[in-house]
């Protein structure tokens, strides 16, 4: 599979131990300049090692599974964790956005992820966990950021323009007409980072996935194709996720009489 006979080089445990040198470099800098970071550095190093080791075992276990239902369940769990993280980042929600973020993430991730896995990568069987888990994981990591940005911006814009929204309602606007400009702003905020990353990819840095595949011995030309698919997939999932979450959320800022929800004033 590799180009020119190269395949990946294993890092043995002995070699791994050598990476302590790198931790030492960081530690010495912190000690010399009295940055007070030694404790966090040690704790961080231990945590990183333990977490990665654990996830390694978990992934080895999952990759041996041959049951599509269990794999879908694992992905649902990933969606749940990502949605918790996304809603944690929203500063002033009207309603706790746990349910809507879960819905937005799950719907967008599954639709886009399935298109990629089933039609583009097309492994056999389609639920091959070595393909499903990383693909869905990458989508979730990005959509999570996207929907958090979009929702946060939507609330921020509307809180900042209550007079305008109220004036539009007085002039006969529906709730959607009254917040349309702010909804657009929110979608733009959510989608801009992924669209910008399309512009600079390969120029500023090589994406982690592509780097990994090249280190693992994949022909760079193939790795590039993968990377392209992944990036447009992320953009599509982020766009969908933002649209869903904003669409499901703006209405909660209004009451049943199509006026601004009185809670909005009290939160201010």
């Amino acid at each position: 599979m590799g180009s020119g006979g190269y395949s990946y080089i294993e890092i043995s445990y002995a070699q791994l131990l050598l990476s302590i040198i790198l931790v030492l470099i960081t530690g010495i800098i912190s000690a010399l300049l009295q940055l007070g970071l030694i404790k966090s550095l040690l704790w961080g190093t231990v945590r990183a090692f333990v977490q990665l080791t654990l996830i390694g075992y978990v992934l080895s276990f999952i990759f041996k599974l041959d049951n599509w239902a269990v794999i879908l369940l694992i992905i649902l769990l990933m969606c749940y964790i990502a949605s918790r993280e996304a809603s944690r980042r929203i500063k002033k929600p009207m309603v706790k956005p746990d349910a809507v973020s879960f819905l937005a993430l799950t719907a967008s991730t599954f639709l886009v992820g399935m298109i990629v896995v089933v039609f583009i990568v097309a492994p056999d069987p389609w639920y091959t966990p070595q393909v499903m888990i990383p693909i869905f994981g990458m989508i979730l990591g990005n959509s999570m950021n996207g929907i958090a940005l979009a929702l946060d911006r939507m609330y921020g814009e509307i809180y900042g323009h209550l007079d305008e929204v109220e004036q539009l309602l007085a002039l006969g606007a529906t709730p959607f007409e009254a917040v349309r400009d702010y909804v657009k702003e929110a979608l733009r905020a959510g989608m801009t980072p992924t669209i910008n990353s399309l512009m600079v990819v390969g120029l500023v840095s090589l994406p982690g996935m592509m780097t990994g595949q090249i280190l693992a011995g994949m022909d760079p030309a193939v790795a590039v194709r993968y990377q392209f698919v992944v990036m447009v997939m992320i953009a599509a999932a982020v766009a969908m996720g933002c649209l869903i979450i904003v669409g499901l959320s703006y209405r909660s800022m209004f009451n049943e009489d199509m006026a601004l929800n009185e809670k909005l004033y009290r939160n201010n």
Partner: peptide, 16 residues
């Protein structure tokens, strides 16, 4: 609510 608000027109103190 739309018919009501355009018929009973509120003009705020601070113009928007």
């Amino acid at each position: 609510p739309y018919a009501w608000r355009t018929c009973i027109q509120y003009v705020p103190q601070k113009p928007v």
